[in-house]
């Protein structure tokens, strides 16, 4: 189901949580609402669900204006950050809840409910836990039961609030991929909230980056990463080296291959893997010293210090594949040559 938000604003006292948000989400997408804490992403999710009322603006689900509709009429499935499983009910009763509270006319028979719940339990691969209580489950299991409970009412939109936030790192990795695959299988339009850019990149088909209650950029993970719309998005997604014409000599930057294409451009962001490090070819090349390096697995991260830029924050980070690093056989303190393959230029807006 498509979701259209127009001019959603929400204020908590003096704090502007959401500032005129408009957003279109096409059917079947798996969207990440990504941003630092306090950016308004959870509030936006709760407004879509109907758990919170916007001060102004409209929410349209599948073309219907549901702004005034209570949560129960919106046909959404909501997975809460801490799952909010009913602690006094078994796993089975938790999942069956949404089916059992329907008005008598619409309610399925107990046999159908029974089958449906077990189907869902199989879907989340936890059928063997059906008679346990929530407190007897691990975090990852609770998370999957909460998802099955939300899916039981056959929602046309699935909303997940920090779905992996409360989990251990190892469980989180597995569940991310599992959620992505489950989404492929069910194809329910889904939105999840996260503050973890890696998680958003890995799971989502579309990412919406929020900051201070505004949308900074919306796009596919590769659009967001390769063509960040602005300085904030570029900084927030992945690591980046920052060069500023206000501090860095334009001539020096030119020798690295950094040339502004637009007269307004002032700041250049360069991803570590867009920096090529090689053995110095001539003595005239600018002095850049390999200060330290770290092993990150498949890649090596190099800490480079250009001469004359001694401050610790001026360290340039570059990344290269493991094999390449061994080929170069560099040692700490070696002089190296560096070239910038690609950069994003931003003008500065105050």
């Amino acid at each position: 189901m498509s979701i259209v938000l127009s001019n959603i604003s929400k204020q908590f006292g003096a704090f502007k949580a959401l500032d005129s948000i408009s957003l279109d989400i096409a059917e079947g997408e798996l969207v990440a609402l990504l941003g630092p804490s306090g950016c308004g992403k959870t509030t936006l999710l709760r407004i879509i669900a109907g758990l919170e009322q916007a001060d102004s603006g409209e929410v349209h689900l599948q073309g219907d204006n549901v702004t005034q509709q209570p949560v129960k009429n919106r046909q959404i499935g909501f997975v809460f950050q801490h799952y909010a499983l009913f602690r006094h009910m078994t796993v089975f009763d938790n999942i069956a809840f949404g089916l059992r509270v329907k008005p008598r006319k619409e309610r399925l028979s107990e046999t159908v409910i029974h089958k449906k719940v077990h189907d869902l339990l199989n879907l989340v691969q936890l059928d063997w836990l059906h008679d346990r209580f929530p407190e007897q489950l691990s975090g990852g299991q609770r998370q999957r039961i909460a998802l099955a409970r939300a899916l039981a009412v056959e929602p046309s939109v699935l909303l997940l609030d920090e779905p992996f936030g409360a989990l251990d790192a190892s469980v989180r990795k597995d569940l991310r991929l599992w959620l992505r695959h489950l989404h492929h299988e069910l194809n329910v339009t889904s939105i999840f909230v996260t503050h973890d850019q890696e998680e958003a990149m890995e799971v989502a088909s579309q990412i919406v980056v929020l900051n201070h209650g505004r949308i900074e950029q919306k796009g596919s993970p590769s659009q967001i990463y390769d063509r960040p719309a602005n300085d904030f998005v570029s900084r927030f997604i992945g690591h980046t080296n920052i060069f500023d014409l206000a501090h860095d000599d334009a001539g020096w930057l030119k020798t690295l291959g950094l040339v502004a294409t637009n007269p307004n451009d002032r700041i250049a962001h360069v991803r570590p893997h867009h920096i090529i490090v090689e053995k110095p070819t001539s003595a005239e090349a600018p002095t850049i010293v390999l200060q330290d390096w770290q092993h990150l697995g498949a890649t090596i991260r190099l800490e480079l210090n250009p001469d004359g830029r001694k401050a610790p924050e001026s360290t340039i980070y570059a990344e290269m594949p493991n094999d390449r690093f061994h080929e170069l056989a560099l040692n700490r303190g070696d002089r190296v040559a560096m070239k910038v393959k690609q950069a994003h230029w931003f003008s500065v807006t105050a």
């Binding site: 908590f12 709760r46 109907g50 758990l51 919170e52 009322q53 209570p70 949560v71």
Partner: peptide
């Protein structure tokens, strides 16, 4: 935690 205003 802000109180939700959808509570009936």
């Amino acid at each position: 935690m802000p109180q939700s205003n959808i509570m009936p």
